[in-house]
Simulated scan of single mutants.
Amino acid sequence: MNVGVVVFPGSNCDRDVVWVTQGLLNQPTRMIWHEDSDLSDIDVVIVPGGFSYGDYLRCGAIARFSPVMQATIKHAEQGKLVLGICNGFQVLTEAGLLPGALVRNRDLHFVCDRVPLKVERTDLPWTNYYRTEEVITLPIAHGEGSYYADANTLKSLEENGQVLFRYCNAEGKSDQSSNPNGSLNHIAGICNRQGNVLGMMPHPERASDPSLGGVDGMRLFEGMLGAIAAIL
């Protein structure tokens, strides 16, 4: 199976992802420049973290118009997998692949930390290697990571089980003290209705190598690759 990692001017987590998919999981991985539009050989597209196009205007607002994102939209429409991490999540909302928006953190400060997350659903490729309501720990690093959507969109996300990760404390309880950025409903990651597109603010690629002190993110990549292998 082939993994594609998008590279924008300003991306800075692209090689972190490549280290996981290619270096640790031994999967063929191609770095895709933002001007490229041929994804015919790619099974899963990963839009990494960073500051695409310098985050001018809004985070992800310019990246949405790139040739690679137009191709990624078509890739998703075919039912293929797309993962957006941090800035990648912001790009996916700007591109219309996921609802809502990521806005300035509640306290208007950049947050860099390791936080607990509750896994809400485990019947999708992204989470099928976790347990329902399992509490995992992943790093975050963002200034505009507060998830926002109107009331109807939030209601739809909850009713359709599109919230996959939620900020919580070590016991799995979600409240303001365990919410690092003010995200509505404590949302850390959502998918589209079909489940093939995931956007999340935490960084699973930074919690996949044992040498970094945590591997809770590795199961996301293993589940993703396992799901692809099952249909190839």
Rank of each mutant, 00 (worst) to 15 (best):
V3C: 08
V5K: 03
V6H: 06
V7E: 08
P9Q: 04
N12D: 06
D16R: 10
D16K: 11
D16I: 07
V18N: 08
V18C: 08
W19H: 11
T21K: 04
Q22H: 09
L24P: 04
P28E: 02
P28F: 01
T29N: 00
R30N: 10
H34C: 04
D36Q: 13
D38Y: 05
S40M: 03
I46W: 05
I46S: 04
I46F: 07
I46C: 06
I46V: 13
V47K: 04
V47S: 11
P48A: 00
G49A: 00
S52M: 05
Y56D: 10
R58Q: 02
R58A: 06
G60W: 00
R64P: 06
M69D: 07
M69C: 07
Q70W: 01
T72S: 05
T72H: 05
K74E: 13
K74Y: 04
K74A: 12
A76R: 00
G79P: 11
I85G: 05
I85H: 00
N87V: 09
F89Q: 05
T93Y: 00
E94F: 01
P99R: 01
P99N: 01
P99A: 03
A101G: 05
R104C: 02
R104D: 04
R104A: 11
N105I: 01
R106D: 15
R106I: 15
L108M: 14
L108G: 12
H109L: 15
H109D: 15
F110H: 15
V111C: 10
V111M: 13
C112V: 15
R114M: 12
R114N: 14
V115M: 14
V115L: 15
P116H: 07
L117M: 05
L117K: 02
K118F: 05
T122D: 08
T122K: 09
T122G: 05
D123G: 09
D123S: 10
P125C: 10
W126C: 03
T127R: 03
N128W: 14
E133A: 14
E133M: 07
T137C: 12
P139G: 12
A141R: 11
E144R: 09
G145C: 05
G145A: 02
S146I: 07
S146A: 14
Y147M: 04
D150Y: 09
A151K: 14
T153N: 10
K155F: 13
K155Q: 15
K155A: 15
L157A: 08
E158W: 03
E159I: 08
E159H: 11
N160P: 05
Q162W: 01
Q162I: 01
V163K: 07
L164E: 04
L164P: 12
R166W: 03
C168N: 02
C168W: 11
E171S: 13
S174T: 12
S174Y: 09
S178T: 15
N179W: 00
S183I: 00
S183Q: 01
L184S: 14
N185P: 15
H186Q: 06
H186S: 12
H186I: 00
C191G: 13
N192R: 09
G195T: 11
G195Q: 13
G199F: 02
P202G: 12
E205K: 10
R206I: 07
A207H: 03
D209K: 12
G214C: 13
D216I: 07
D216V: 09
R219Q: 13
M224C: 12
M224V: 06
L225H: 04
L225G: 00
A229Q: 14
A229W: 09
I231R: 14
I231Q: 12
